[in-house]
Amino acid sequence: MLKNTRKTLYLFYFVAPALLLYTVFMLIPTIGGMFYSITDWNGLNRNYNFVGFANFIEAIKEDPDFLNSLWFTLKYVVVMVVLQNALALLLAVFIESRTRFKGFFRTVFFMPNMISVIISAFMWTFVFTTVLPQLAEKTMMTFLDQSWIGDPRFSFFSIVIVSLWNGVGYMMIIYLAGLQGVPQSLKEAAVIDGANPFQQFRHITLPMITHAITICFFLTLNGAFKVFEVVFGLTGGGPGRATQVITMNIYEEAFSNNFRYGYASAKSVILFVIVLIITLIQIRITKRNEVEA
C-alpha cells in the first residue's frame, strides 16, 4: 500500500514539469476563455460585467456573419475530410503496391507537408494570380484564366486545393504505416480463396487498417474545423466575408472588430463544443468498426 503511494508520488514528480506547463499555458487560458465568454470584457478596460448567456444567444440568433462562417467551415470540413482521406488512402495504396521507387514517391508526396502552411498559401497565391493566367495565354487554355482567389465561386476550390496539397502527405504516411501492418498471410489466404484485388482490399485491407482510419478522420476533422492559415494567406476571408472561416470570424471579433473579447470567447466556446461533439461521435463510430488481426 505504502509502496504504491510512493510510486504514484514518483510518477507525479516525473510528469510535474509537463503538467505545470500544460496548466499554465493550456488549462488556465482555456478556463479563462470560458470565464470571459460570460462577460462583456473588451480586452482593454479594467472592469467588465457578467452578462450570463447573452453572448451565446447573440452569436446564434443575431450574428449572420458568424452563422455564415460556420456554414462555410462545415462545407469545408465535409469536403476536406472526404477528399483528404480518399486521396491519402489512394496514394498510400498506390505506393504500397509498387516494388520500386517506394521511398522516392513517399518523399515526393510528403514534401509539401514540410512547408509551413502560410508559406504554401503565399506560394499558391503566386500560382493562381500569375502562373495560371500566363499558362492560359501561352497554351490557349482560356478556362485557366479565372480570378481564382478573387471570385467567391472559385476561391472555395482554391482553398481546398491548397489545403489538400499541404495536408495529404501526412495522412498518407499514417495510411502507409497501417497498410504495412496488414499480415501477408491474410492476403494470401484471400488469394487462394479466389478473391479479386478489389475484394481483397474491401474485405481484408480495409478492416485491418481501421485504426489508421480512426486517427486520420480525427486529425482531418479537427484540422479542418480549426483551419486558419490557408484562408488567411490565400484570400484573407475575402472578398468581403465570402470565404471567412469560423476561426477567422473569432479573430476578427476579438482583435479588429471593437475588441469584443467576451463575445469572441463565447464564439470560441461554441466552436469547442461543436468540435468536441462531432469528434466524439466520429471516434465512437470508427472505433466500433475496428478489428484485431
Binding site: P239, G240, E252
Partner: peptide
C-alpha cells in the same frame, strides 16, 4: 471607429464582387 472601417473594407469588396 476601427470596426466600422473594417466593415466598410469588407463591404466594398463584396460590393465590387456583386455580393452586396
Amino acid at each position: 471607429p476601427q470596426a466600422v472601417k473594417d466593415e466598410v473594407g469588407k463591404g466594398l469588396q463584396s460590393y465590387f464582387s456583386k455580393q452586396m
